[in-house]
Structures are given as C-alpha cells and as structure tokens.
C-alpha cells in the first residue's frame, strides 16, 4: 500500500481537504438528513465562503440536491424529510423554529434544473418576489428592479421589447436566465443552483456560466452540476459527495488536477470507483 492509499484509509470517514474556510458566509456542522428512516446525508461539515462559487459534484443519488435544499430549508416541503445538525447563515440559525422561511428564501435563493417560470408575463415573473417581500413601494421602483435584475441576468436586451409577453414563451436558455433574474430581484446573498444548465445547449450554458462568474462578485453561489467541465470552469472550490458523505473539499484547481481522495479521482476521471 502506498502512502496516499494509507491516508485515504485512515480518513475513510472524515472529509479530506479543506471543508472549512475563514470567511464563511454559511457554516454547516454535523448535518444528517433522513427521508423517513432512510439516511441520505451523513455528518457533513462544510463552510461556504463569502463570494465564492462552490461546486457540488458526485454520482447520481449521492445527496447533492438533498444537501443543497437544506441550505434554504427547501426540504421543509417534503414531509418525510428530517434535517439534523447546525446550519448557519452568518449569525442566523437557519433551522431556528421561530424563523420565517419566506425571508430566508429571499436571502438564500434557488435556481432549479428545469427552468420554471410562472405562467405570467416576463415582467411579473421578476416583479413577483419584490412585490411579496415589499421591496418596492412605487411602480417606478419596481420597474427599476425588474430592469436591473434582467440586465444582471444578461437577458434585458433580448426581452426589453416584450416585457409583458409570457415568460413561458422564451427559449429554454432564456427561461433559465429569467429564473435567475427572478432570484436576483429579491437581492439574495446566496444563490443555490441545482443543475441549472442540464437542459441547455452549449451557447446558453456558456451564457449562464459567464453570468455565474459575474454574479460571484456580489453573491455567494453553490452549484450542483453533473458536468465536470462546468464545475472546473465556474467554481472556486469543489465538494465531492459519495453515498451521502462529503468525501473531499478542495480548491477546484486541485480537485481537477490532483485530488486528495481516490474516490474523487475515480469519479472525475470516469473510473470504476
């Protein structure tokens, strides 16, 4: 057995690499997630740094979406789902029972795999959040939020002449950017993305990735992706999940050139694990 195999074995149950950071925007400790009595996430410790893009990768069913959904309590909507552990957004305990999840989900927004615009106009899709959160008192203010959000999402020029046309009338890539605009409209601090490009062509994907790079200047982003190249392109750190465990977290550069754990290596190089 060589040295690296030794280390891998010694830490078989501990995340290798650097799951914790100094400047954390979100801190998760000892996270366990159950669906009824079936455990899906095992003792995950992870920090997400301020303004960082963290990619979460791993084989299908390893728990990426489950973990991501904990970060804004999206799992609350699943009856049989139970979350244990400490999850903090800065000083806010995310699972504090007295916490109202609506403002939490404004602070921690989410973009899904399939673009899911509301069956409303483009304008109303973006204006929806600011309206329910009372972020704009006058029409002109709302107009401004809609325009800025669409601009940030890189969609403004394509839709400015048909703001009152239906959001569902856009192409898949445009719909996805509309959903991103909708998320940004409520000024979130963290944006969660679950395979945001899996339904998009390479050009639409490139636009979203470009957008992610721009957004990361002001937002903290956690993205789940099945594309290794996408993780390598957009993220600063990469977290590798395997069977509900967080195996390795390291700088993306390291993960894709010289990962610490054999399981990570096997996954990203397409080997039998």
């Amino acid at each position: 057995m060589n040295i690296s195999e030794h280390t891998a074995q010694a830490h078989a149950d501990k995340t290798v690499g650097e799951p914790l950071v100094k400047n954390a925007k979100m801190s998760m400790r000892g996270v366990n997630v159950f669906y009824a009595d079936k455990q899906a996430i095992y003792g995950v410790d992870l920090d997400i740094g301020r303004n960082e893009v963290i990619a979460m990768i791993g084989p299908s069913g390893c728990g990426k979406s489950t973990f991501l959904r904990c970060l804004n309590r999206m799992n609350d909507t699943i009856d049989i789902c139970r979350v244990e552990g400490k999850l903090m957004l800065e000083n806010q305990d995310i699972y504090d029972p007295s916490l109202d999840v609506v403002p939490l989900r404004a602070r921690v927004g989410m973009v899904f795999q399939k673009p899911n615009p509301f069956p409303k106009s483009i304008y109303d899709n973006v204006a929806y959040g600011p309206r329910i959160h009372g972020l704009a008192s006058r029409r002109t203010e709302l107009d401004e939020i809609v325009e800025t959000s669409l601009r940030k999402a890189g969609l403004w020029d394509e839709v400015k002449d048909r703001l009152h046309g239906p959001g569902t009338g856009l192409s898949g890539g445009q719909q996805q950017r509309l959903c991103i605009a909708r998320t940004i409209a409520v000024s979130p601090e963290v944006i969660l993305m679950d395979e945001p490009c899996s339904a998009l062509d390479p050009i639409a994907t490139a636009k979203i990735e470009e957008l992610i790079a721009e957004l990361s200047e002001n937002y903290t982003i956690a993205i789940v992706t099945h594309s290794m190249q996408q993780a390598a392109r957009v993220s600063h750190r990469t977290a590798y999940f395997h069977l509900g465990k967080l195996i390795e977290v390291n700088d993306t550069e390291k993960v894709f050139t010289n990962p610490d754990h054999d399981l990570t290596e096997a996954y990203i190089t397409g080997r039998f694990g």
């Binding site: 390598a232 894709f256 010289n258 990962p259 990570t264 190089t269």
Partner: peptide, 9 residues
Amino acid sequence: RQPAASDLR
C-alpha cells in the same frame, strides 16, 4: 476526453 486529474497529468 477532456481528461482530469491523473489522466490530465
């Protein structure tokens, strides 16, 4: 193949 890790190396 867009190789990664040891394959890339």
